[in-house]
Amino acid sequence: MAYKISERTLAEIDRLLKIYPQKEAVLIPALHEMQKEAGWIPEEAMDALGARLNIPYARVKGVVTFYTMFNRLPMGRFHLQVCRNISCHFAGAAGMLRHLEDKLNIKEGETTEDGLFTLSAVECLGSCGTAPVIAVNETYHENMTVEKTDRLLAELRAENNSD
């Protein structure tokens, strides 16, 4: 089935094409826009975007697979990203990750059956002074503890139920 880029994203692409002197530079901003909609970038979307920007599909694929923020699988509504790097590690990130695995009954890299949570260990989020850090989608939660993590999960569940 052919993938249709949304009108909103197409308009954004057109806007960006006027700013950047080369069309290929629009690729990464456009991928961000597309991911906002579905939460991930299917192969068909790479095809459609390549066609829109007149870039070979392979070039798009190379870019999507290079950058870790572009998801290539459907994601849970909340993407829990536990920083695993050095300062967070000292502050107990590994235990936090295990706690979340137990609590959500999934392994790192997996999504809960209800499609609510995807759990990832990620590299340094650049917030080492407030380690350990968990990012939920694009929001940082800093100075985390097991208790705060439990509260966070409850809040996210509540947010989902209230929608």
Partner: peptide, 14 residues
Amino acid sequence: TVSGRNDASFIDMK
């Protein structure tokens, strides 16, 4: 293209 990165990267195509 090259897909992925580090030692997990590989030559890829459609």
